[in-house]
Amino acid sequence: MEGQKKILFVINPISGGKKKTAFNKKVLEVLDLSKFHPTFQQTTHPNHAYELGKKAVEAGYDAVVAVGGDGTINELGSALVGSGIPLGIIPEGSGNGLALYLGIPMNEASAINRLNRFETVEVDCGYINDKPFFNIAGLGFDATVSDRFANDTIRGPIGYLRSVVNVISKYKPSKYILTIDGKTYEREAFMISVANSPQYGNNAYIAPNASVSDGILDVCIVHKFPLYILPMMVFRLFNRSADQSEYVEIIPGKEIHIQRVEEGPIHVDGEPISLSGDLKITVKPKSLKIIC
């Protein structure tokens, strides 16, 4: 129909451990088909969402929708950044950190219905050695957990919790040299999270004051702490007071350089990646439009 906006739904069939066999039918029931013409594609391999996003840009789609978690959002966002084509989100992941922060409904039908308004916000994009991220990138403990979780057969929050338990008893803090906007810090850290948005997902807030639209990243350094403190650390994540812990240091910045004494896993929006050597982290303000 003339005047309809072309929307591509990119569906990750395994995200969050949720079946999505009835998703296309739900879209046809809820989406305003007088305004939108939907097309559906399922991902079949790593980086497939990125490839589909790039093709959608070339084909002149009016929007692309990630049906999955923060990893799917990352791939599609990376393809759309700077294009002016907005990204829609149907949260179907294990944590859904960015969607929760943006107030996108967790209910599938409600999230689809939200697309009908077609209202957008512009968000910042972080880069870690030129790899984009929109929610949180990190190294240390949480990256090690993400690496373990990615290789687990159990998805969803239960699988993630199992990965945490398996890693934490054996994990040792590492030494880092950080340069943030020209100032240098030497730290022994349990983990370092570079936050564009405040939370990992499931309403666990590592950087309560972070914003996706302020042109600044929050560098969250979690110092070595005694294991008996762990329940309190977890409690602080969920009551948005992590920044008040004596074991957490948050330094805002735009240009961040991290030297590692030992190399280890890195996660970008919850997905483990391999990056060797020093890490250069920057931010590109308001470079992606998101329908919310």
Rank of each mutant, 00 (worst) to 15 (best):
K25Y: 06
G16D: 04
H37M: 09
N24L: 01
H37V: 11
F36R: 13
H48W: 07
P46K: 01
V10W: 02
F36E: 14
F9N: 00
K35A: 10
I11R: 01
F23K: 00
K18W: 03
K35F: 07
K19V: 13
V27M: 12
Q41W: 02
F36K: 10
T43E: 12
S34Q: 11
A22L: 11
V30H: 11
P46M: 03
K26I: 12
H48Y: 06
G17D: 05
H48C: 14
T21N: 07
V10T: 06
P46C: 04
N47G: 08
P13C: 07
T21I: 06
S15D: 06
K19E: 13
K20T: 05
A22T: 10
N24K: 11
N47V: 05
G17E: 05
Q42M: 10
T39H: 08
Q42D: 08
H48D: 11
K20D: 01
S34L: 14
P13H: 04
G16N: 01
G16V: 02
K25H: 11
S15C: 03
K26W: 06
V10A: 07
K18M: 07
Q42R: 06
A22M: 08
F40K: 03
K19W: 13
H48L: 07
L31Q: 11
Q41V: 15
L28W: 08
V27W: 10
D32V: 12
S15H: 01
A22N: 12
I14V: 15
H45N: 07
S34F: 08
T44E: 05
F40I: 02
S34V: 14
S15Q: 04
T44N: 04
V27Y: 09
L28E: 15
F40C: 03
P46G: 02
F40N: 04
H45G: 07
F23A: 00
N12F: 01
P38S: 14
K19N: 15
P13A: 06
H45P: 02
P46W: 01
T43P: 06
K26E: 10
H37Q: 15
E29M: 08
P38T: 10
H45R: 15
G17R: 12
L28Q: 14
N47C: 09
V10M: 03
P38V: 09
V30F: 09
K18I: 10
P13D: 02
D32K: 04
N24S: 07
H48V: 10
K19M: 15
K20M: 01
H45F: 11
H37Y: 13
N12H: 00
D32E: 14
F23D: 00
T43M: 10
S15Y: 05
N12W: 01
T21C: 04
T39R: 08
V27S: 12
N47P: 09
P46N: 00
I11S: 02
S34P: 02
I14R: 03
H45Y: 10
P38Q: 09
N12R: 01
H45A: 14
S15V: 01
P38D: 05
V27P: 06
S34I: 05
